[in-house]
Amino acid sequence: MITRRQALQVGGASFALLSIQPTLLAATDVIDITMAGRPDGSHVWFDPIGVHIQPGQTVRWTNKDAANAHTATAYHPDILDRPRRIPNGARPWDSGYLMPGESFEMRLTVTGVYDYYCQPHEHAGMVGRIVVGRPPDRDYPNTARSGLIALPDAALANFPTIADILASSK
């Protein structure tokens, strides 16, 4: 037989679980980023270029550019000798070439700032930034370890600031 005290404890625990469920559900939402471009190929971009998500959320990149193939590639030394611009402990990714209509997903679990680019269009400034959780307000410096390829000026000029991404998510 269950005592009144046990029933209240079970009820309280159930209420506590239900009260946090919306937070857990929010962390499972998929965030969509579009790969886009002008029909003549003269301008390409990610939309949105900067997003703020919670740890555990999934980002989905979809190529909606009928004129180009694109990639979503993390800045990381393991991928094409690029400087690390994702948090320590985070898994780097490379979508490979996505043809029009194709998508790629990545679940981001480590708090921090993730910078990524499109391999064939980085020189045109096709980059993006994802802020996961509440990292310190700092941008990556334009430095590369010896033997790593520095980012082109067009890419560096296009990253939104962390502060702007956090402000736009409020």
Results as ranks from 00 to 15, higher is better:
130 I>D: 02
35 M>P: 01
35 M>T: 00
4 R>S: 13
43 H>W: 08
143 T>E: 13
59 V>C: 07
100 P>M: 09
15 F>L: 15
52 H>E: 07
99 M>N: 11
32 D>M: 10
11 G>L: 12
72 A>R: 02
83 P>F: 00
52 H>T: 05
8 L>G: 01
138 R>V: 15
91 R>T: 13
19 S>I: 10
125 G>H: 04
35 M>Q: 12
110 V>R: 07
124 A>M: 12
46 F>M: 05
6 Q>C: 05
62 T>I: 11
78 D>E: 15
28 T>K: 14
92 P>T: 02
65 D>K: 06
108 L>T: 06
42 S>D: 15
35 M>G: 11
3 T>A: 07
73 T>W: 01
152 P>D: 06
5 R>A: 12
87 P>W: 00
151 L>I: 04
148 L>I: 04
4 R>P: 09
50 G>I: 04
67 A>Y: 08
59 V>I: 15
59 V>Q: 04
50 G>M: 07
121 H>K: 06
158 N>M: 13
146 S>R: 14
161 T>G: 04
123 H>M: 08
38 R>E: 13
40 D>Y: 12
109 T>Q: 14
115 D>E: 15
92 P>C: 08
41 G>C: 04
46 F>Q: 03
124 A>K: 07
124 A>T: 07
51 V>G: 06
111 T>N: 00
120 P>N: 13
15 F>K: 12
15 F>N: 08
169 S>T: 06
72 A>T: 01
91 R>I: 12
57 Q>L: 06
53 I>K: 00
1 M>N: 09
104 F>C: 05
16 A>N: 02
94 D>F: 14
3 T>V: 04
94 D>W: 10
59 V>M: 09
85 R>Y: 00
155 A>Q: 00
145 R>S: 08
69 A>M: 08
19 S>W: 13
51 V>H: 11
82 R>K: 09
87 P>A: 10
38 R>H: 07
137 D>I: 15
32 D>A: 11
135 P>M: 05
84 R>N: 15
147 G>Q: 02
11 G>C: 09
145 R>K: 15
107 R>K: 15
159 F>L: 03
107 R>M: 13
52 H>N: 08
57 Q>Y: 03
37 G>L: 01
128 G>H: 05
2 I>D: 11
92 P>I: 03
95 S>F: 02
156 L>A: 04
11 G>A: 15
50 G>P: 03
43 H>D: 13
87 P>I: 00
29 D>R: 15
74 A>P: 00
46 F>V: 00
30 V>M: 14
27 A>P: 01
21 Q>I: 11
112 G>D: 00
85 R>K: 11
19 S>Q: 09
170 K>S: 15
77 P>F: 00
148 L>Q: 07
10 V>G: 01
